[in-house]
Amino acid sequence: MTTADAALATPLPAERAWLIVVRRLLADPLGTLGLTIVVLLVISALSADWLATHDPFELAPRQRMQDPSPDHWLGTDQLGRDVFSRVIYGGRIALWVSLTAVSLSLFGGLVLGMLAGYGPRWLDNALVLLFDSVRSFPTIMFALAMVTLLGPSLGTIITVIVVASIPVYGRIVRIQTLSLKETEFVLAERALGAGPIRVLFSHILPNVIGPLLILASMEIPVVITIEAGLSFLGLGVRPPTPTWGSILQEGYQYIRDTPWLVIAGGLPLILTTLGFTFLGEALRDAFDPKLNRP
């Protein structure tokens, strides 16, 4: 054995890749900030039932548009509902919609992308054509059409987002699959008797999933913004479901009476977007082997 070989062969302390990633993440101040915001959001969404001071659906028209007070921390809206409680529950919905939509589109993108990349040529051509046609259609126009057809609801929003973002993931997975398919280790696996399913799930999937998860964490704020945008246009979640977008929209209608409604709906939206973006970027850096940091 050469000395280099021997040095490398000496077992290093057992370190898991994710430990390195977490250490790198915490070394990045923006990454730490992002992680903190995301963790706080998750906690507040999970414990909305305890955090909320009022029933977010309880109407009291005569107590409408009150200024912030010890009883109503962010005041009340045009129907006398407690805005703070609605914001807390809005976070739960934002998180739920974005996680559902992102995981569904991630799954769809993975399956279709791997099919396109590993399957027969005609299937690849058909799927690429499908991806391109969906992408060439502006998301908001697509959303308008879907809402007209299905009516506004959480389900419609998630459908719109999933259909619109499957191509984003699908294209990345396809490209990766195409290049992985040609690698020697896939050939080696096939030479040792692995079939397409085994190659895809045991070998290509683990190589694709990492970058895809980073992309997904960057997509979450995009999804939250799309949901808020649709709700702001009145095409989103059905009233009286509290979402940040609908709080923002109602706030805008009464901005001259209750300016804090716009802030109450807008600020969490901005913070969440920043949080996930910081986290996603820090994760991307942390996973990037080319950035050789401790």
Binding site: F57, L59, P61, L79, P239, P240, Q253
Partner: peptide, 15 residues
């Protein structure tokens, strides 16, 4: 109709 008075009225009616 998708405007404030209608949506507010409908929410109270639903309640």
């Amino acid at each position: 109709r998708n405007s404030a008075e209608f949506v507010n009225a409908a929410q109270v009616a639903a309640a």
